[in-house]
């Protein structure tokens, strides 16, 4: 068991360290990459909790898709670092209040007495499928919450598309179905003519 403890402390240290570095580094691309590292190492901690489905999904969705798009945007934007660092003092009270609130919540959630009451999770037998168990609960007990979340996401997608959808005049975009429908006779004319004499 000491190996598992060692692995836990290693990844916990990496998670906390990279999360701290993420909010302190100046370069936004470095910050995004450190966030990727944070996600990745927290996936390992979930794996130690025998939540392999959630751990792999975290890597698949957040690291493999969301952060790629995030990096895409951060790399494309020409961010002025000086402007970003402005207003630190102005936003300090709000930030401090948020941090304090969050910290109090964590403090209550991880109250020692309550943690002892729940106790350590019992290891499941080897043939126990985390994926199957999760699916069964998600599509029976929590099906309405699940569907509501899906609808909210759909609304967000439609909103994002409608915000950016605008047609500029004069752009020469192509219509693939029109291109495919073109026949040889419309574009090509074979003419018979005599060879010109010099």
């Amino acid at each position: 068991m000491w190996i598992e403890t060692l692995i836990f402390y290693f990844f916990a240290a990496v998670t906390v360290g990279s999360a701290l570095a993420m909010i302190t580094v100046r370069n936004p691309v470095h910050a995004a990459l450190l966030l990727v590292l944070t996600f990745f190492s927290s996936a390992f901690i979930w794996m130690l909790l025998e939540a392999e489905f959630l751990a792999i999904t975290l890597v698949l969705v957040y690291v493999g898709a969301v952060m790629v798009l995030f990096l895409f945007v951060v790399m494309m934007l020409d961010i002025n670092l000086a402007v970003l660092r402005e207003g630190f003092v102005r936003f300090l009270p709000v930030g401090a209040a948020l941090a304090l609130g969050l910290f109090t919540m964590i403090w209550y959630a991880f109250d020692r007495a309550r943690l002892d009451m729940i106790g350590a999770p019992t290891p499941k037998p080897a043939d126990y499928s985390n994926t199957r168990a999760l699916g069964q609960v998600l599509y029976t007990d929590y099906v309405f919450a699940f569907e509501a979340a899906a609808v909210i996401l759909l609304v967000a997608i439609i909103a994002a598309i409608s915000l950016t959808l605008r047609r500029r005049k004069g752009t020469k975009y192509q219509n693939p179905s029109e291109q495919i429908r073109v026949r040889k006779a419309e574009r090509l004319k074979v003419i018979k003519m005599e060879a010109e004499k010099r």
Binding site: F53, I56, T57, L60, G64, N130, T131
Partner: peptide, 13 residues
Amino acid sequence: DAGLLYILAMTSL
């Protein structure tokens, strides 16, 4: 158990 998901996660990295 979740081999397919693992492969998908690794190829996406």
